[in-house]
């Protein structure tokens, strides 16, 4: 917690995933930025220590096409290779192995998509791939829907973190089912990181207020008019949401309760 340091925040242990401690609870994607300089500025402004990257063919027709590592220092950011675009467990396992072979991390952001329109996950294939990859020593961070039973099965399959969506990838709709997100967090021992669906800072804040361990986002920052400014807003929102969760909110009531004493009023 960089901006404020009340006691409750000072006592909050940092997020630890797969044996790695991260000072920021914000994990960022590196896709969809207008240019690499904007991406780098946004990552810095966000305070993130872990970033996702995608595994793709080198474009052999474009002379010396620059990969993302020409701009990202793997010493500065823990790389989280993803399996984005994979529709079967086999495909996702192949991409995960290629990502690990790059030699930067044992982590994989596992996603197996089940539907092209909604990009909702194929949870059966995700569980199957998680088992295989966890057995191979991968630290699997699995993208999934907000379903408790799937989340429990992913934890049982050996995932290092379970990452339910707030709402569909790239939708910016925010947390559509806070109750399910809270229930998943309550029932799992491994970190729960909400992945996908955050649109603006208030969404990130509401997400963190559910008590989850972190939040992963890409489009909300990359497609903001000013990505570094939005990244700074997200950093504050994640800190604010975490602090509000730790502080313990008042119960919500549907009737008014006066804040000033009813006693002592004049005749």
């Amino acid at each position: 917690m960089a901006t404020m340091n009340p006691t409750v925040a000072a006592q909050d242990p940092p997020l630890t995933v797969g044996g790695h401690t991260l000072r920021s609870r914000l994990i960022l994607g590196t896709g969809k930025y207008a240019d690499n300089a904007t991406m780098v500025a946004a990552l810095k402004a966000s305070g993130t220590e872990m970033v996702t990257v995608a595994v793709r063919r080198v474009d052999l027709d474009r002379e010396n096409q620059e990969g993302v590592l020409f701009h990202l220092d793997p010493e500065e950011y823990l790389l989280l290779p993803n399996t984005a675009g994979c529709y079967t467990a086999e495909e996702a396992i192949r991409y995960a192995r290629l990502g690990r072979a790059a030699g930067f991390s044992e982590f994989v952001k596992l996603e197996v998509i089940g539907d092209q329109t909604t990009l909702l996950p194929d949870v059966h294939a995700t569980i199957e791939a998680s088992r295989v990859l966890a057995a191979e020593g991968f630290k699997v961070m699995a993208y999934t829907n907000d379903d408790l039973i799937t989340a429990l099965k992913l934890e049982d399959a050996g995932c290092a973190a379970v990452m339910p969506l707030a709402s569909p990838i790239g939708s910016g709709l925010g947390v559509v089912n806070p109750y399910f997100i809270r229930e998943i967090k309550r029932r799992l021992d491994v970190p729960v990181i909400v992945d996908a669906g955050v649109g603006t800072a208030s969404d990130a804040c509401v997400t963190m207020e559910q008590g989850v361990d972190g939040v992963l986002m890409n489009t909300a920052i990359a497609r903001a008019d000013d990505p570094p400014a939005m990244a700074a807003a997200m950093r504050l929102a994640v800190e604010a949401g975490r602090l509000a969760y730790l502080a313990g909110r008042m119960p919500a009531r549907e009737i008014a309760v006066p804040s000033s004493p009813s006693k002592g009023m004049l005749d």
Partner: peptide, 10 residues
Amino acid sequence: LELVHFVGGG
């Protein structure tokens, strides 16, 4: 032969 590398992604 497949030659792959990391590109920006979410």
